[in-house]
Design a protein around this nucleic acid. Sequence first.
DNA 1: CTGAAAGCGCTAACAC
DNA 2: GTGTTAGCGCTTTCAG
Lengths: 352, 352
Amino acid sequence: MANIDDVAKLARVSTATVSAVVNGRDGKVMPRTRQRVLNAIEKLGYRPNLYARTLARGRSRLLGVIISDVMNPFFAEVAQVVQSEALACGYNVLIAATQFSVHRLNDAVEHMIGMRVDGMVVITTEMDEHTLAVVRRRKIPVVFEDVGTTDETTSNLRVDYAGGIYRAVLCLAELGHTHILFAENYPSITEKRRLFSIQARSDAFAAAVKKFSNLKSFTIARPGPPFQAGIEAAVTARSHFDFTGVVANCDPIAIGMLRGFRRSGKRVPQDISLIGFDNSAWCELTEPPLTSVDVSRSSIGTAAVEALVGMIENKTPGTDIRIETNLILRESVGRAPKESRVSSNAAVELRP
Amino acid sequence: MANIDDVAKLARVSTATVSAVVNGRDGKVMPRTRQRVLNAIEKLGYRPNLYARTLARGRSRLLGVIISDVMNPFFAEVAQVVQSEALACGYNVLIAATQFSVHRLNDAVEHMIGMRVDGMVVITTEMDEHTLAVVRRRKIPVVFEDVGTTDETTSNLRVDYAGGIYRAVLCLAELGHTHILFAENYPSITEKRRLFSIQARSDAFAAAVKKFSNLKSFTIARPGPPFQAGIEAAVTARSHFDFTGVVANCDPIAIGMLRGFRRSGKRVPQDISLIGFDNSAWCELTEPPLTSVDVSRSSIGTAAVEALVGMIENKTPGTDIRIETNLILRESVGRAPKESRVSSNAAVELRP
DNA sequence: CTGAAAGCGCTAACAC
DNA sequence: GTGTTAGCGCTTTCAG
């Protein structure tokens, strides 16, 4: 493949001139010369080698974004927004997915360091102290989501789970619901530990309910993938608890519950009001469309890039960045029905 | 940031030795020396500069994949599969999204050339002759989807739309449906041109129906985004055509129709059987779950990488690669109802 | 305005 | 086994 020397030779100029033309530092190049260079480039199909360029420049203007899974629309959208935002700031973006493996997280980080990224944003469900330490030590500006510490080169996105869940509960309360169920899942029978962001929602629910004196609350947790867990939760919960409002800790659970309720003859929203979490694209497609708590992916993306660029270019120290949440009203919520159902507290897996 | 010289100095060896250690060319390095080098690396936090490495090696072992949109699960999954498949073959992968813009397609291609990718797979809805020519001229191995030509360095993925649609029609016919509707959308009132892959499905439907002597078929096309178009199509179609089976040209349309039918009091599958196209994740979540034609994303990914690696490493000439499609049965299809509805052929936008 | 030349950090012969 | 060194292709002073 043709290189800068070939072009220089063909245009009968030096490589410096070619470089100037290629990088738009005109002004310093006579139009005639410039044209000769351009012709040579065209003729040879010359394209600068970006490795050589980056090496020579000593600066990558590259941002790394590490997410858990490209196929998850949440992560995909965040990556997307980071990318276009970064582009606007003159940075290119390198995307890596960990597939939820700590090992691949580590690989990704090492790769980004090798690529000399100027900064990175890590929005993953998994996290590794060691990996984190490596980044810290190098003082590479980095933005995490919901990770504890903050320092000179690390910022933190804090999603306002509490606010979102509170709004969901408030909404139900205002519609007259007094008995509210929180539905969640956990990985499997043997693995009950959950991600921080998932746990945070549980905690937020407990906290939200406390603020209302007249609310009775229940929690049901089922093992397995969220959609299945949701179906099961809907069926199980109805025979154990007395409730008319439900907050699910993610949309797939809510969608599963929608199916569970329908199959057991309960109508949403006439009999039961249902609220999901994440405001994913699915919410629009369900029947009825699902009310859900929105975590702005675009806020996450823009906030991350803003923080990153600040740390990179102005040495701004890392900060906590609050990410707002909002309740998006759709048709899955309605006034609480008049009559109440029989209550009974048998043994189901539930959380305090 | 520490470089190879720093490490060499600290370990009191030459850079060649450091390089040998870093690249696992042990055998040629005494364990003692090796250890010294490793210590130095650890102490300095040394990580090889990938740009310098690639430049020196003269080979990127990089594959580029260009898709239209990361947020679309179809593209995301293809990218995903290509990535892991490539990794298995010892290639890294660079992903770029065009957001359906020809301009960005071009940028992406230029960037990949700059990165000296060994080959690329381009699965986009948009396409540009000029861009294509640039790649051809450079003889960079490339895999396209549903693009006309094939040559020494370009292969083609051909999705078997005809087979998939045929199976859908066959399925309905076998269940006793004799009046079948094909539902599709087009960008907008002013822009009726559609993507090749979309048009191919229309054509496939027409062809499939011809194979059955007893089938009566209709087509309805509505402008706008598929989900909305689907809702509208369901409502409109029922007042104009007499049908019991529907094939939609993509899942969102089918999901929209599901809503449209429900709202107009028709039950799926009791009154109407409905089949989507793409077998997206949504199909599992609808009520009832949607029967759909599956285009194997993993086949696309693996086939693409296989073809690419063949062209790169063995100079295999480009070929056409057939991608199979399958009908995935779920609950949105059932036997045709006994009675038929009144028919009337008023003026709706339809396609031959 | 243009050219010569010194790196950027690493690899891979080729010596020793 | 280990060191020396000549590139890889581009950018960027610094002269002219």
